[in-house]
């Protein structure tokens, strides 16, 4: 039994635990990437990150906004598509495959594509806007338009994931409650609201927990589209940590930010998990 566990345990220690310990060590030292002095500085790095107005005033709000908006957007769109696809119709397979396509596109490729679509000089979005008489918009110059593009890209990429999982759950729901409700005169909306949705709750909660934790760590889409700009206004937690460590070469502050982020995501994850447990309990 022990022999079966040891390989996995060793891999976990070498590639997870040891790097985390090294990172934690760096967070208590003065450690620039270009000249690693490694002098012990206690909690100074934590103080610097936690009192950085950019971190608590822009980075954390952006991270939670991104998390909430992209999870909500993906969930609502995925639920809608799953309900639509949960019936027999001509061309059902083609439509289902087409809806899954974004899931097969690497996020960086999608982000580059969206960046060009939103380019103020050559982008198709502004061409379309001008065609209907609207003024072109420099999408990536302003905080909220940039943030909206980042969130929309993420929702587009992740909606199929929600769709697949919710569709699978819909196909396994028992027909009896729906039939009983129909006999009692419930219309389509009431059926969905009071029967389908409560029965789907455990699956929806799993989707939300997994995606929320993943969205908290978002890096690729934000980096490719805005690099945290303009003027650091769309920075999320991962971009902030990366910039500290690898653009400003403050390895100590980068690892400190990462550890603070890890602590935050653990708290958020625990709260969401508690919500999930409650949802599963209710659905029983």
């Amino acid at each position: 039994m022990l022999a079966l566990i040891v390989p996995a345990f060793l891999i976990l220690v070498l590639f997870q635990i040891v790097p985390i310990v090294i990172g934690a060590n760096a967070s208590f030292r003065s450690w620039s990437l270009f000249n690693p002095q490694k002098t012990f500085v206690g909690l100074a790095n934590y103080r610097r990150i936690l009192t950085d107005p950019l971190f608590y005033g822009t980075v954390l709000p952006n991270t939670f906004l991104f998390m909430a908006a992209s999870v909500t957007g993906g969930l609502v769109a995925g639920l809608g598509l799953a309900v639509m696809l949960n019936r027999r119709f001509r061309g059902e397979r083609i439509i289902r495959t087409a809806i899954l396509l974004p899931l097969m596109v690497p996020p960086v490729v999608a982000a580059i594509m969206i960046t060009w679509m939103c380019n103020d000089q050559f982008g198709i979005v502004n061409v379309a806007m001008q065609a209907v008489g609207l003024e072109p918009v420099p999408w990536l110059v302003y905080r909220w338009t940039s943030m909206a593009i980042v969130i929309a890209t993420d929702v587009w990429l992740w909606t199929p994931w929600f769709t697949i999982l919710i569709l699978a759950a819909l196909r396994t729901l028992p027909p009896e409650p729906h039939e009983a409700a129909r006999i009692d005169g419930a219309g389509p909306w009431r059926l969905f609201r009071y029967i389908t949705l409560p029965l789907l709750q455990p699956v929806l909660m799993v989707c939300v927990v997994v995606r929320a934790i993943d969205a908290f760590r978002v890096f690729d889409i934000v980096w490719t589209i805005t690099k945290g700009g303009p003027a650091r206004s769309t920075e999320t937690f991962s971009i902030y940590a990366y910039k500290q460590a690898f653009v400003y070469l403050n390895f100590d502050l980068g690892t400190t930010a990462s550890l603070i982020g890890a602590a935050i995501v653990m708290v958020v994850g625990a709260l969401l998990y508690r919500g999930l447990s409650a949802a599963v309990e209710v659905s029983r």
């Binding site: 620039s32 270009f34 000249n35 110059v141 302003y142 700009g229 303009p230 003027a231 650091r232 206004s233 910039k243 653009v247 400003y248 070469l249 403050n250």
Partner: peptide
């Protein structure tokens, strides 16, 4: 000086913020 990348980025970020 060794802090030039951070100095440079901080300057440009504020200039971009000012111009927008």
């Amino acid at each position: 000086f060794a802090r030039w990348p951070e100095f440079f980025a901080t300057g440009i970020d504020h200039m971009v913020r000012a111009v927008t």
